[in-house]
Design a binder for these strands. Structure first.
Lengths: 194, 194
DNA sequence: GATAGTTGCATCAATAGAGTCGCAAATTGT
DNA sequence: ACAATTTGCGACTCTATTGATGCAACTATC
């Protein structure tokens, strides 16, 4: 399966570049209109529709490839923060910044997690679990309030990630700092309803 | 245009009931799969596909009707809280609870705001503006932190509304209480990164 | 029971999109 | 310059979906 000559390697590298161009175009088009046609995706990628069909056997295959690609980047983003060994607050910040970097460019593809195949679903479940462990650690370290439902806290965190990824009014680090600050302290002055 | 006999009134009332049944079914089906066919919607509504086409000239017309319906309910939910005259914190809680009640049942239809017609877009812009005024009032009253970007605060609020509407693990009032508490105080113990 | 309105069903045409194929032209490495 | 590969283009089939229509059956009201 591996290339044996430099020629083959160069050509394969070109192919992969085309594939990546199509994936990026698909992300751009489908994030605006999930029902867009292959024609529109091909046009955005600057290639003919037939070329897209040559690279991806079907529409589903293309979408699956997007999910797979985004999932890989997602897992890398979490791994890079070493959430198991880093202090919880630092890990939270690092993960946030890294994930935002991915999600800003692959928003649609990342929303495919639920629809994705067994492979990708497993990776997502794994990440979910690591996030859960991180939140438990943070709670035990006194970073998170003990009177807040952990599941809700994580949901809030995901919602803020999603929101921050939409508002591209700053770089990932700035967004992450603001996000974590909001997550932990809220936007109020400390008064409570209850 | 108005009915003149009791007979006509009764029949029209039946028609409107059918229309409403279809709208509800469309919400249920399209929230799971935005690309669902008219056939699937009709089946979910328990009517023939032709009946749906009799009530709504086209697919777009059906979707527009959903957007219009949800927009009306949305506006009512905000109005009922009297955000202009009620103290900010109370208004915030009331609006949250009312909007959640609508959004839990009309999640898909409410996401159509951006795609909707001029009419609906105007109503949404109006609500947006009233929300902005409410947040300004809340800030001036010392409820909201002055060092937080107001636009970001509102975005966070919308994100939490969206998230809370997805998690149907409690009634609207409970969700609203938790949401506002999280919005104002966050999920942390008060430590800051900076 | 007569009537007006609504619905279900079968069927039709029109359309858009997915997927396939062959061939000429362009690209790229050697 | 040559060979391998990829691409664009045009044409094609096939299928799903939309939207329209005529007719018989049903329902509620009078």
């Amino acid at each position: 399966m591996k290339e044996t000559t430099t020629s083959t390697r160069a050509l394969r590298s070109d192919s992969e570049r085309t594939v990546h161009t199509i994936l990026e175009a698909a992300e751009r088009v489908l994030s605006r209109n999930p029902a867009a046609s292959m024609e529109q995706i091909a046009e955005a990628a600057g290639v003919a529709r037939t070329t897209v069909h040559r690279r991806f056997a079907s529409r589903d295959a293309l979408v699956a490839a997007m999910a797979s690609w985004a999932t890989r980047r997602f897992a890398e983003a979490v791994d890079a923060a070493h959430p198991e060994t880093t202090p919880p607050l630092v890990a939270l910040y690092q993960i946030t910044a890294n994930v935002l970097r991915v999600k800003i460019d692959w928003s649609f593809a990342m929303s495919l997690a639920l629809t994705a195949d067994r492979e990708a679903a497993h990776v997502h479940a794994d990440i979910e679990e690591r996030c859960e462990r991180l939140f438990v650690k943070a709670r035990e370290a006194g970073v998170l309030r003990a009177d807040v439902d952990p599941a809700w806290a994580r949901r809030v965190y995901y919602a803020l990630i999603h929101e921050a990824a939409q508002s591209r009014d700053a770089d990932a680090d700035t967004l992450a700092a603001r996000l974590v600050d909001t997550l932990l302290r809220g936007v109020g002055t400390g008064q409570s309803l209850t």
